[in-house]
Design a protein around this nucleic acid. Structure first.
Lengths: 332, 332
DNA sequence: TTGAAAGCGCTAACAC
DNA sequence: GTGTTAGCGCTTTCAA
């Protein structure tokens, strides 16, 4: 199968120079005569030589790959447009560097496997997204391999972790305040997973702004869960009804919208609805969703650049926040 | 930052044995005395030793990592539930092996970077999904590094490539025949990207079954593109109208459904609609979509196991197909 | 069963 | 500028 990949040594022989010279040419060192460069490049072309990155990694003890760690895809991350944007941002930022992105699927049952991978010198650093509250598997790795979290880690031992986030509490408060400004008084919320900071904080913000404490249902950020939560909410609200809903993301808002329609409730006339994320779901529903915009691709880029700085040994602030804004559309 | 990771040599010293013995213990060799095993394991625990996988890879010239290559995420792949299922399947199959999955984002502009990564000994093999017709960047790598394609590669030079797929032509024909059996006669199609086999083949199947040659609009598999295509179709159809639509995936069907509703057309009464994939979009629309089911997670598993066999040097059939079936719901 | 020794392919001082 | 010489940390014959 593998027809003996040419090695640097073979290139050296072919070009009639030493391995060091080949190495210098390959790595673009300035101190090589043009003739030598030409000879080496010709030999490389002739042999179709590709450097062995594993050997290089070992020699330099750095790999030029960074991992984007995601929880096992049985969860909904992979179908989440917000996640897709994050990946795009990371990928964009990295394309200007020598780093390669490696998306690592980590199942919690196999935490040890993942740990060995991270500690085994396979990557220069890692980005951890969609991190769960109870999970401290990665936190303590931070002292050995540079780590940046997407979203504030909530575990107590995370005090000195680096992360990039938005101010979810403030944003949720803003969204809820908007509902109030519309004259809505019975404002429910469809909260996100309560083992994730985004879920926790958006609920807290809604609460702080004056959401009705009795009208809380928790989903898992998926469309289906949003629909189910809305059903429960409607049932629970009884006669007084509900006139406003803040959903912790657009997918759940979209699910809720379907249920509202099915119950003959008009949006926004009967029930005003606000989502979160400003992802494609927000603009493909009828009516389109009023929602909290967060700069997801930019967040991805921040994650990447922060990690690269960390790897380079630069001083980086522990916490970095990106701004959010309320996008007014038709649903509220 | 890095507090000098302990090496195998340090473990050997700590345990009072040779490096070979430590290596044997780490790799579970049977020919080591229980005492030695105990001593080594104690030393490993004391030092918190984690083997350096890069060094191991270099020594064994295999990495135990396989790459899942996806095109740059500016495309829609990452938000596609079908893709999410594939990833889940791959991940499931691999979790029973020693392989680690590494999802590689490859931009076509940086094909060279990706090529070097693949050829540089970073991975033992790769899975290529969402492959474009015109792109032969990876095809020729197949002779150097084991490769399995998700979806038949359409490039002429792909004759000997390994791939896993469903019979898209037959499945599309089945879907269209269902529309015919419902008495529909003016059957349009919203085709998928025509630079991908799935897009091409589903269109061909629709054609073969007797779709109206004048009623074709092409989308890119995204919800928005499905909506836009439906608009164009409606405009184009004029007075005679359309009484059936076959969309090349559920996302586009969902987009089309919104447009049909907006035009006051009832589904399925006025227009019967069939999708493809049987993904979450199919069951969250109203009415729910009749669609072609394909076993996406199973496809992912097939991809993974096929690649592993290939890496092991086993004989593997070039082409493997998974079965599809028509799922009847409310839209047709 | 265990250890010594020779690499895996590349980089990086250090001389020349 | 270029080559020589050591490794990077692990695996793997080969003897003992």
């Amino acid at each position: 199968m593998t027809p003996q990949q040419p090695t640097l040594e073979m290139v050296a022989a072919e070009a009639g120079v030493s391995r060091s010279t080949v190495s210098r040419v390959v790595n673009g060192s300035p101190k090589v005569t043009p003739e030598a460069v030409a000879a080496v490049e010709a030999a490389i072309a002739r042999l179709d030589y590709v450097p062995n990155r594993v050997a290089r990694s070992l020699a330099r003890s750095r790999t030029d790959v960074i991992a984007l760690l995601v929880p096992e895809p049985s969860s909904t991350v992979f179908a989440d447009p917000f996640f897709a944007s994050i990946v795009r941002g990371v990928s964009t930022a990295l394309s200007e560097t020598d780093y390669t992105l490696s998306l690592l699927i980590a199942s919690e049952q196999q935490a040890a496997k993942t740990r060995r991978f991270l500690l085994g010198g396979n990557v220069d650093g890692a980005l951890v997204v969609s991190h769960h509250a109870g999970d401290d598997s990665y936190l303590h790795l931070g002292s050995t391999v540079p780590l940046v979290f997407g979203g504030r880690p909530v575990h107590p031992s995370a005090a000195d972790a680096h992360y990039v986030d938005v101010d979810n509490v403030a944003a949720a408060r803003l969204a809820t305040a908007h509902l109030l400004s519309l004259g809505r008084r019975r404002i429910a919320t469809i909260a996100g997973r309560q083992d994730m900071p985004a879920g926790l904080d958006r609920l807290a913000g809604w609460r702080a702004a004056g959401g009705d404490p009795a009208l809380v249902e928790v989903g898992d950020f998926s469309l289906e869960s949003g629909a189910a939560a809305m059903e429960r909410l409607l049932e629970r609200a009884g006669d007084e009804g509900i006139d406003g809903v803040f959903a912790a993301n657009d997918q759940m808002a979209a699910g809720a919208l379907g249920v509202l329609h099915a119950h003959g409730l008009r949006v926004p006339d009967d029930v005003a609805l606000v989502g979160f994320d400003d992802d494609p779901y927000a603009t493909t529903t009828t009516p389109q969703l009023t929602t909290v915009h967060q700069p997801s691709a930019a967040l991805g880029e921040m994650l990447a650049t922060t990690l690269v700085s960390l790897i380079d040994g630069d001083d980086v602030p522990r916490a970095q926040y990106a701004p959010t804004s309320l996008i007014r559309r038709a649903s509220a």
